[in-house]
């Protein structure tokens, strides 16, 4: 069964067409990378999937639930990680995770929350620290733990590795891969072609709100992927 199903979806901001009849699907266990320059429509796609924005036309379905018709139910089935994970600065990592999990009606004991944070890659010494002292990488890890707290069937990531150092970025890729291997469908918007090749089963290239290319990154080298991407930008630019 298709987990994420976007059909002929369009969205405009005034005269600007952010998405034009976009159609794409993500299967359980698959990581789909959304590539494209700034303004290509990646974040708009993510926001429509998360129910933050309503499409002008088309359908968006997650695990059989129409996002437009029933956004609350659709949100229960997704985990979401933005480019910059925002947390309550006066709470510790553990308290943040327990709070966000509780919003999804999941109660974690302190030890369960700790275990999940460690699993997300956060150092155990940081678990009880206020997140206001955290680096971006540490916050992203808490964000992953939060997104995973629901054991969601679909994970939506909006440039999650942006601003992370290579090590943290690699760790993040491994975590995403693991989530997908556990059966979740993952849609990940990114600028990082190398990381896309490392993580994704399939990538699509967006330009001006349109899907212009679909590729299997595992069947090509990182250089080939970069060349195709740059070529696509030039052709369509």
């Amino acid at each position: 069964m298709t987990m994420i199903d976007i059909q002929n979806t369009s969205k405009s901001y005034g005269p600007t067409k952010a998405l034009q009849s976009l159609t794409l699907t993500v299967q359980p266990g698959e990581v789909l990378g959304l590539l494209g320059p700034n303004g290509a429509g990646k974040t708009t796609t993510i926001h429509i999937l998360a129910g933050f924005l309503q499409p002008d036309s088309g359908s968006v379905v997650i695990d059989g639930v129409d996002v437009v018709q029933d956004p609350d139910e659709a949100r229960r089935r997704i985990g979401y990680i933005p480019e910059n994970v925002a947390l309550y600065p006066f709470l510790s990592a553990c308290e943040n995770l327990r709070h966000f999990a509780a919003l999804a009606e999941i109660e974690f004991s302190k030890s369960e929350a700790t275990e999940r944070l460690v699993h997300a890659g956060l150092a155990s010494s940081a678990i009880d620290r206020r997140v206001s002292t955290f680096s971006k990488g540490m916050r992203q890890k808490v964000g992953i733990a939060i997104a995973n707290s629901k054991d969601a069937k679909a994970l939506i990531l909006d440039e999650p590795a942006s601003g992370l150092d290579p090590h943290a970025s690699h760790e993040l890729s491994m975590l995403v891969r693991k989530v997908a291997d556990d059966g979740a469908a993952v849609l990940m918007a990114t600028h990082d072609l190398f990381r896309a090749k490392e993580t994704c089963d399939r990538v699509v290239i967006l330009r001006g709100g349109k899907l212009v290319q679909q590729l299997d990154p595992q069947s090509m080298s990182a250089n080939d992927l970069e060349n195709i991407y740059l070529e696509e930008m030039q052709v369509n630019g």
Binding site: F52, G79, Y80, P82, L87, Y88, F100, L103, K150
Partner: peptide, 10 residues
């Protein structure tokens, strides 16, 4: 960006 994280949790 906190609002979108809260809403995304359902």
């Amino acid at each position: 960006g906190l609002l979108r994280m809260l809403i995304a949790q359902g």
